[in-house]
Design a binder for these strands. Structure first.
Length: 802
DNA sequence: GTTCTAGAAC
DNA sequence: GTTCTAGAAC
């Protein structure tokens, strides 16, 4: 909308129609004070002179540089002079820079309150102002030549655009010569009886060039190679071993004191087996992996040679049952004896090095430091299942945060030697966010240390048996996780499904520990184990629901497996295929079947986990429905900031949305609206906006329901602000329209949005940095721009004046 | 996504 | 010296 292009009265009528809240008075013609705002060289004097020359109404230009008989005077003299002019019925231009609120304040008090105060902001490119200032001679303020550049630059750094809240009735922004011309015309043609409409006008086109001197922008950043992590994985290297290690090392931070590296057991074999782009697409994320420490060989002082035999024996037994999943033995040190023993023995037994290998690194930082994503890690737990004690147990509890302790406590209070306990890790845990770990399996091995409980006093007959049981429990626990997530081949699935059902049926009759024991018997069959994954006390509605979901999933993957088998066998699962739902599940990195989309890091998975497994996160969710779940944003960018997640596998972002999702989008909108209204009942001063990010950082389509105060300590940078206040934010109402009309939503994913200058969403004033912007928005009471009021984009409390 | 921090801007 | 941002690290 460009009101300056129209005759004032015409403009008034046009605006009256479009701008709610804009008050248009046409009955009288009172003098007006126009405060010019602009750097030296922005053209303020030229503007005033032009209007004065061409206007039908009497104007006075108050210029501090000339007010003292042609020489510079004081601000007080300016005010006095302006005041006199007003009394004579003349309109006044305050021709000085007026770059901040303090400078403008005194002029806003001029005359009686009836006198309208306008601002005309000449926000022209800094370069232009500087070049004009430098070139000119005979400037009234003696600002010319070399020193002009420095002064202009400094002023622009400190500029603070006027806002209606300061007391202006009208603010006109001019960002280029054309705007200036239009604004001059508006004031030139302002007759004695005309009154201009109130509000902020000449809003800068968000896509226009960013003002110099405010911020750097549009810096093209190289996005790390989407297959970077794949490259660092030995299994996906197309090069030889030494190249792999070198590559892996080069990705490590320089200060990484405990570098991780793969210890290959048969790299040649690995590489030769995997070639071609299909494997690359099926990135490291897509291979379910259990990382486990050597059990009992540290603090429990179990004989290393014997332990290594047992590890290799158990790995050999299980590795073939785990589909394409991997087992990785992890130890901290390069000189780890257990690793070298196991490595040698596994090589002798020709265990598939794709499925089992050893790894040197910190088990709590396998992804962030070692570049290896492990969705499950094992913990060498103590019998109390408590943090502390040192070693792996302390490290894992510490890295996972209190969430792990809570989740563990909900499932069991203690653990017997030889047993394992599967604990789904809440997605809020740092271990989940940073490392991509979804489950921790606590394992208790036999103890040969007299200083620790249940010492076996070197009884290695019993010790070896218990250690074997411990690994069996661990690997079966891992298998149960895979099966509930649809990773497992048919046989394991059936077993798991059966056990799952038994968990559920047993669960209804009371004591959880009894159930666990029963479960021990049903899982795996051979030895007693504990499998408590997914088991949570007091499941009512959600438990049943969860059971159904998990059951359905298993059936789906089972069918999928059948299909695979018929068309060439289980190995097919390793390859991506367009219609392969198992692959979709495996593609945790969020790539689509074309492999073209960006990879989702482990930190980007938590919403997906909420959407797919709401029953695990009931405490964190506001509402669980069939199609959506509602939760508070973990890092709210406003007083109220909720997310409505779609519960559809594979619907990761707005770009994935098509016409078939219209009912879902409608549901999301309706649920979002319902929550907005609920929150408005609690606080009617809030205003909500519902929309999507053009390209989300977190996987899983989510609708933001965010209050427009943006009052949050979590709103910290330009990207945060701009993701909600530029066209990057797609209003839900618009998305609904677009999808129903064209079958897809418009995506405005342009790097420039992130670095776009910071403008108030209400008065559209620009601010040099986030703290200043936040100070401004905390007090800006300007009405929302008309474009935001269109189409019900903003949700207000009933009866609230906008 | 957040956190951390070096270096730029003030 | 302090504030702020951008980019790297996680």
């Amino acid at each position: 909308m460009e009101p300056m292009d129209l005759h004032p009265q015409t403009a008034s009528r046009e605006i009256a129609k479009e701008e709610e809240g804009a008050q248009v008075k046409v009955e009288n013609g009172k003098p007006v004070v126009v405060i010019m705002v602009g750097a030296p060289g922005s053209g303020k004097s030229t503007f005033c002179d032009h209007v004065i020359r061409t206007s039908a109404r009497p104007w006075v230009r108050i210029c501090q540089d000339t007010i003292g008989n042609g020489k510079a005077g004081t601000k007080i003299a300016c005010i006095k002079s302006a005041s006199n002019a007003l009394e004579e019925g003349k309109s006044v231009f305050i021709d000085r820079c007026n770059m901040d609120g303090e400078q403008r304040g005194d002029f806003l008090k001029l005359g009686n309150p009836e006198v309208e105060k306008h601002a005309v902001v000449l926000d022209l490119p800094a370069k232009l102002c500087i070049s004009r200032s430098v070139k000119r001679t005979g400037h009234e303020g003696n600002l010319q030549g070399g020193k002009a550049a420095a002064v202009v630059n400094r002023m622009l750094q400190k500029k603070e655009f006027p806002k209606l809240a300061e007391g202006f009735t009208r603010i006109t922004f001019c960002h280029n010569e054309k705007d200036v011309e239009a604004a001059m015309n508006t004031y030139s043609t302002l007759g004695l009886l005309d009154v201009l409409p109130s509000g902020c006008f000449g809003l800068k086109n968000p896509e226009a060039k960013v003002q110099l001197g405010i911020m750097r922008f549009l810096k093209k950043v190289d996005i790390p190679g989407k297959d970077g992590l794949v490259e660092s994985n030995p299994q996906h290297s197309s090069d030889n071993q030494s190249a792999v290690e070198k590559d892996s090392g080069s990705r490590r931070p320089a200060n990484d004191s405990a570098p991780s590296e793969y210890v290959h057991m048969d790299v040649k074999n690995t590489v030769s087996q995997e070639s071609g782009s299909s494997i690359r697409t099926n990135s490291v994320y897509s291979i379910p992996t259990l990382a486990f420490p050597s059990i009992s060989t540290a603090d429990f002082q179990f004989n290393l040679d014997k332990a290594s035999d047992i590890i290799v024996e158990k790995v050999e037994e299980f590795v073939s049952k785990l589909g394409n999943a991997r087992l990785v033995l992890v130890d901290l040190s390069h000189g780890s004896k257990i690793l070298s023993l196991v490595k040698a023995k596994a090589a002798r037994k020709s265990i598939d090095s794709k499925k089992f290998f050893t790894f040197v690194g910190d088990i709590t930082r396998l992804y962030s430091q070692g570049g290896m994503k492990c969705n499950v890690i094992a913990n060498a737990a103590n019998w109390r299942l408590k943090p502390g004690g040192g070693g792996v147990n302390a490290a894992i509890f510490s890295a996972a945060g209190p969430a792990l302790e809570t989740a563990t406590k909900e499932r069991a209070e203690s653990l017997a030697p030889g047993k394992a306990l599967v604990v789904p890790l809440p997605s809020t845990s740092p271990l989940s966010i940073k490392e991509g770990v979804t489950h921790v399996v606590h394992v208790l091995g036999p103890n040969m240390n007299a200083q620790r409980p249940n010492c076996l006093n070197n009884d290695y007959v019993k010790g070896c048996k218990v250690l074997g049981e411990a690994y069996s429990s661990l690997f079966e626990g891992f298998a149960s996780i895979l099966s509930t997530q649809g990773w497992m081949p048919k046989e394991s699935n059936e077993k798991s499904l059966k056990s799952q059902n038994q968990i559920e049926s047993k669960h209804h009759d009371g004591d959880q520990k009894v159930k666990r024991e029963a479960l021990n018997e049903c899982m795996g069959g051979k030895k007693s184990k504990i499998f408590c994954n997914e088991l949570k006390p007091n499941f009512s509605h959600s438990v049943d629901r969860k059971g159904n979901i998990e059951g359905r999933k298993n059936v789906e993957s089972l069918n999928e497996f059948e299909r695979n088998k018929n068309s060439g066998g289980f190995l097919k699962e390793l390859k991506p295929s367009a219609s392969h739902s198992v692959d979709r599940k495996e593609n945790l990195d969020g790539r689509d079947d074309t492999g073209m989309n960006k990879a989702w890091g482990p930190w980007a998975q938590s919403l997906y986990q909420f959407a797919m497994h709401p029953e695990r996160h009931r405490n964190d969710l506001r509402e669980i429905l069939d199609d959506v779940v509602v939760l508070d944003d973990l890092y709210p960018k406003a007083r109220k900031h909720l997310l409505v997640l779609a519960r559809v596998e594979g619907l990761d972002r707005l770009a994935d949305v098509s016409k078939e999702h219209l009912p879902l989008l409608n549901t999301m909108h309706a649920v979002g609206l319902k929550w907005a209204e609920k929150l408005l009942n609690e606080n009617e001063s809030l205003v909500f906006r519902l929309g999507y990010h053009s390209e989300p950082s977190m996987r899983q389509l989510h609708l933001h329901v965010i209050s427009q105060d943006f009052d949050s300590k979590h709103l910290k940078n330009k990207k945060h602000w701009n993701s909600f206040n530029t066209p990057f934010f797609r209003d839900s109402v618009d998305v609904l329209q677009e999808v129903s009309k064209h079958g897809k939503a418009i995506i405005r994913d342009d790097d420039s949005f992130r670095s776009m200058e910071l403008r108030c969403h209400r008065c559209r004033s620009a601010h040099p940095n986030i703290p200043r912007l936040k100070t401004h928005i905390s007090s800006c009471q300007a009405p929302f721009p008309g474009v935001m009021l269109d189409n019900g984009k903003l949700v207000f409390a009933p009866g609230r004046i906008r």
